[in-house]
């Protein structure tokens, strides 16, 4: 049922991108998705595949700082750009405040949506100093969670925002 490949179209395309701060050079077939590149070529399995067509948000990564769905992003279209995945959030032994908040609020159950959810949350927290609960709901509305009913996730992101504001010295 899958359309047949066109003969001669499987040439590899060389790419240079920055993944979690590391320069990566790799050659992939044009039809490789960014999610496949991350998970199967680079071994960065933190980003998840839940639907593989842009409906669930489990594969959310930051591309040049913006949250995108890696399952419907071509790897070749990430050439020359910067990718951040969940694996980049913790610095050494230090968890990102939103990671700590998710742990402390019981906001991860099965954990499958968590990496994508965290990347959407990080983007929100990077850009907004004091998001309201409605802001948080909006920012996470492209990430389905099936376990938590969202309540504890929203609590965790709000708590992280407060903590980050305090760390910056008020506001």
């Amino acid at each position: 049922m899958t359309p047949e490949p066109h003969p001669g179209s499987t040439a590899l395309v060389p790419l240079a991108l920055v993944v979690n701060g590391d320069a990566v050079r790799v050659a992939v077939p044009a039809e490789r998705t960014l999610l496949e590149l991350l998970r199967y070529d680079l071994g960065l399995t933190g980003s998840k595949q839940g639907c593989d067509k842009g409906d669930c948000g489990a594969c959310t990564v930051l591309l040049d700082g913006e949250p995108v769905l890696a399952c419907i992003t071509l790897a070749v279209d990430a050439d020359g750009r910067g990718v951040e995945t969940v694996e980049s959030l913790a610095k050494g032994q230090k968890l990102h405040p939103v990671q700590t908040a998710v742990v402390n609020h019981g906001a991860a159950q099965c954990g499958f949506c968590t990496p994508g959810m965290l990347m959407s949350a990080k983007h929100l927290l990077d850009g907004s100093r004091t998001p309201t609960r409605e802001d948080v709901k909006q920012a996470l509305s492209g990430n389905l969670c099936r376990c938590t009913g969202y309540t504890k996730i929203l609590d965790a992101v709000e708590a992280a925002a407060r903590e980050m504001a305090e760390a910056r010295g008020g506001d």
Partner: peptide, 8 residues
Amino acid sequence: RSFDAVTG
């Protein structure tokens, strides 16, 4: 288990 979940 959640430490593993949040770090991927």
